[in-house]
């Protein structure tokens, strides 16, 4: 019982695993492109949680936390670009429905 209430590494890993799974599900099932991008953010942040957790519990040094900061920055830049592409998409297709954009077929 004690082990379950003392917040340790397994808890963080579980949370990040759940986030990862949720991110995958979001990307796979949502049709709105912006929602898909939200799913991608979930994936990246799950990994960031992992890095921070490992950094504290396993490594003892801050390399993982530095990595997490990099992830935040790069995720942000990727989100910017992705949204810009969504804007282009909207300008061309007048919709943000992923299934509607199917001009490239075999």
């Amino acid at each position: 019982m004690n082990g379950l209430f003392t917040i340790g590494l397994p808890h963080y890993l579980t949370v990040s695993a759940v986030l990862f799974a949720l991110g995958l599900i979001t990307v796979a099932t949502r049709r709105n492109v912006v929602a898909i991008l939200m799913g991608v953010e979930l994936l990246l942040n799950a990994a960031a949680i992992n890095f921070v957790a490992f950094s504290h519990f396993v490594h003892g040094a801050v390399a993982g936390q530095v990595f997490a900061l990099f992830i935040v920055v790069l995720a942000a830049s990727e989100a910017v670009i992705a949204l810009a592409i969504v804007l282009t998409l909207f300008r061309n297709f007048r919709t943000v429905d992923a299934a509607a954009t199917a001009t490239l077929r075999e």
Binding site: V33, L43, L104
Partner: peptide
């Protein structure tokens, strides 16, 4: 098709 290509790329790439 260029916009669609970029969209597909960014989604797959993100995942």
């Amino acid at each position: 098709r260029s916009a669609e290509a970029a969209l597909k790329y960014v989604v797959y790439g993100g995942v």
